[in-house]
């Protein structure tokens, strides 16, 4: 058996989601090859070669692959797949975009967003926003899988010494063009990998009020997130969203502020190790999943939290 892992990256850095996918791939058994597709991404290929558990790195670089458009990438994956028993990608928006297209070309029923590997052909995945977990066995010869990154520990980024081989792309399909990106500039840790996440909901009442959360986040080295309600109300951009339709996070500590706890939000954070919440409505469903709930007005409680952390000299780890 041999497993191909699709690397998630931005042509400069290998994303940590790839490390989680490498761990999942390792559990399926067999040699792990990482595929790096892009342009000007030699540093990414070098980084992938150092990841523990990676036997080989394949790099395809040309202008048509630069933005990882699925129309140009999926045919390459489909072509390479013949040499592998599994093709695995992290379930990031890139992986979700590309992998099913490759599955169509291979006539394979992909298994999406797995949270556990039972054996080489059997996987567990959440359905109904995580309200049920299904165990499925794939009968396809080549298995295509996307991996929920939060449930697999990251592979060690250093210590490996895989060989790097350059391969050709399959050319521009001529169906799509990349017109640009508007990515959020953010000094704080990434939501999906942060050790602590502090999120605000509709109770925050405005985008300006998120500054209060940012101040606490800066003390704790936390990422800042939001509920769908806060995103839909326009307080913060969509990439802050934690939940079924946003990002799934599982930090050591999740602090929910002014978030009622709709099912769709819980789906994105209920695997956090410890959950704390601040909400003035003691009937809010968020209290049912919180390890430590405080019934309080967030506009007094959050500044008080900042003061208490400073008083105790608590800092980011």
């Amino acid at each position: 058996m041999a497993i191909l892992v699709y690397a998630d990256h931005n042509n400069q850095e290998l994303s940590s989601a790839t490390l989680n996918a490498v761990t999942a791939a390792g559990q399926m058994g067999g040699d792990v090859t990482v595929l790096v597709v892009g342009q000007g991404c030699d540093a990414v290929a070098q980084a992938a070669a150092k990841v523990q558990g990676v036997a080989k790195v394949l790099v395809a670089q040309d202008a048509s692959l630069k933005d990882q458009l699925p129309e140009n990438v999926a045919p390459l994956i489909a072509k390479l797949a013949a040499n592998f028993s599994h093709v695995v990608a992290p379930a990031t928006t890139t992986g979700k975009n590309i992998m099913p297209r490759a599955a169509a070309l291979l006539d394979t029923q992909q298994v999406s967003d797995i949270t556990a590997v039972e054996s080489a052909d059997t996987f567990i995945r959440p359905i109904y926003a995580g309200n049920a977990l299904v165990t499925v066995q794939s009968t396809d010869a080549i298995k295509l899988i996307t991996v929920r990154t939060t449930t697999f520990a990251p592979a060690e980024a250093e210590g490996g010494s895989a060989s790097v081989e350059t391969i050709e792309g399959t050319g521009d399909a001529g169906l799509s063009t990349f017109e640009g990106a508007a990515l959020s500039e953010n000094e704080r840790p990434e939501l999906t990998t942060a050790r602590v996440v502090i999120s605000g909901g509709r109770g925050m009442q405005s985008g300006d009020n998120f500054k209060m959360l940012e101040e606490v986040a800066d003390i704790l080295g936390a990422a800042v997130g939001a509920s769908r309600a806060a995103v839909d109300a326009g307080y913060v951009p969509n990439d802050y969203q934690v939940g079924q339709t946003g990002k799934v996070v599982a930090p050591e500590l999740y602090i929910a502020v002014g978030i009622s706890g709709a099912i769709q939000h819980l789906a994105g954070m209920k695997d956090s190790k410890v959950i704390a919440c601040i909400n003035k409505d003691e009937e809010a469903p968020i209290f049912q999943v919180a390890d430590f709930g405080l019934v309080a007005d967030l506009f007094t409680a959050v500044p008080e939290l900042k003061g208490e952390l400073e008083k105790q000299g608590i800092q980011a780890r």
């Binding site: 394979t108 029923q109 298994v111 059997t122 959440p126 359905i127 995580g130 309200n131 049920a132 977990l133 299904v134 165990t135 499925v136 066995q137 794939s138 009968t139 396809d140 500590l253 209920k270 410890v274 959950i275 704390a276 003691e282 209290f287 049912q288 999943v289 919180a290 390890d291 430590f292 709930g293 405080l294 019934v295 309080a296 409680a301 008080e304 939290l305 208490e308 952390l309 105790q312 608590i314």
Partner: peptide
């Protein structure tokens, strides 16, 4: 193409504990 072997409930979270103040919250978390 996929055989469903089992559909299970996810593990239940034991939440619901409350704290009385920010000082208590920070103490518990720390």
């Amino acid at each position: 193409r996929l055989k469903t072997l089992k559909v299970a409930e996810p593990p239940k979270r034991q939440g619901g504990k409350k704290v009385g103040s920010i000082a208590e919250l920070v103490d518990k978390l720390h």
